[in-house]
Design a protein around this nucleic acid. Structure first.
Lengths: 217, 217
DNA sequence: TAGATTGTTAATCGATTAACAATC
DNA sequence: TAGATTGTTAATCGATTAACAATC
């Protein structure tokens, strides 16, 4: 069992999806090269990733036990023990996140939302209560919430982050396209749709402008 | 003007956010080291990123013109000319994406959604029509849509991807945690919340288990 | 001019990929 | 045994960071 790089960690959900589909088809054992082939990844990379999550080693000539791989990966990703989170900012994006049901299978449960808008404070979105941001600290501390999700406008993001840190949160999932400053022991994961779109748009732009390797002077 | 690495491209929205806030405060010129300091990035990295997007060079001792930087970055990211997209899968996640208003400022417009569920086909979500997936090809070809957003369950993702490719789409934004196979000239950008959560969860799990640098044997 | 900041070339770092001996 | 697959050590690759001369 080795420490996994962030890149390796982010490959885990893809492996999981594929391994589960294999398992559903009744495949009990799988070799790394077969997975690499199917997922179009490098063979050595898959081997290393599998080795990194497997306390019991793979068997030469046969491979890895699918159910063990799944269990090990889910364990590392913490899918088994549910982690509570609060969401700050119940606007367009916040609502979207509240209404997304997929999170629960990843072990994430959003307990409540917080907002400044008096018109929605006191209401429910997808059965999740919306509280005033004033209540943020109290609730987080009382329920020992570990994860804070930031879905507020850019300019509020840092302030909300500070409040979350103050409330004892240990990790922040930040959907605002803003760099956040926080103490070193607070883990910040930026989720930036704009950044993703940037790569995508750039590809289309470059293509449209005819910028290719050949067209360079 | 240099080719930007994907990493550099993904930093652009963060720069943009910061530069716009500067511009709003009336700052006309800014030096790379100052930006690096504020955003906690490496000074050289900022300098290189700025140089890469600036046809006119920065001036030693003063820096870069803020408005030019903004315009150049927005140009590279294609924020100025709106790109049309279709969304396939109007379930929990799909609805969330349809209702997110932030996309338009990034030059992305979702024209319509497609789904197999007869109960929602013909309805509207956030003023966007929901069509039957059978109509996918026709509409994409007619309107020359370039971007397809996949928000269907895992097992449907590849089939939908194939249909999109067939319909002349050039880039796919894939929200299913599945590896997609497509021709080389089709650009695929995976957006995986599970992958992001993986990094976040792993941090919390590791912390909970007391796995630190010090606790290693 | 003096000094801060730029652009660029070289060094470092981490992740990916290749090579190969060990193993079932 | 023969051969496929594993685990591991070495080479490659790309991005980040450091060093430094050029410039306003």
């Amino acid at each position: 069992m080795v420490v996994l790089s962030p890149q390796a960690l982010q490959r885990m959900p893809y492996y999981l999806q594929y391994l589960k589909s294999l398992s559903a088809c009744g495949t009990a054992v799988i070799a790394a090269p077969a997975v690499a082939e199917a997922m179009r990844l490098n063979e050595v990379q898959v081997r290393k990733d599998f080795a990194a999550v497997s306390p019991s080693k793979g068997k030469p000539k046969t491979g890895f036990v699918v159910t063990e791989l799944i269990a090990n990966m889910e364990g590392i990703l913490g899918y088994h023990n549910t982690k509570d989170a609060v969401l700050v900012g119940a606007g367009s994006l916040g609502k979207a996140l509240l209404s997304y049901r997929g999170f629960q299978s990843y072990g994430l449960r959003i307990l409540a939302a917080f907002d400044v808008d008096e018109r929605i404070v006191g209401t429910q979105i997808e059965n999740k209560p919306v509280f005033s941001v004033n209540k943020l600290g109290e609730l987080c501390e009382r329920l020992r919430v570990q994860i804070g999700i930031i879905a507020v406008p850019d300019r509020e993001a840092q302030r909300v982050c500070d409040a979350l840190v103050q409330s004892g949160i240990r990790a922040v999932w930040n959907f605002a396209p803003v760099h956040l400053t926080a103490p070193k022991d607070i883990f910040i994961k930026n989720e930036n749709m704009a950044a993703s779109l940037a790569v995508l748009s750039n590809y289309l732009e470059a293509g449209a402008a005819g910028v290719t390797e050949e067209s360079k002077p």
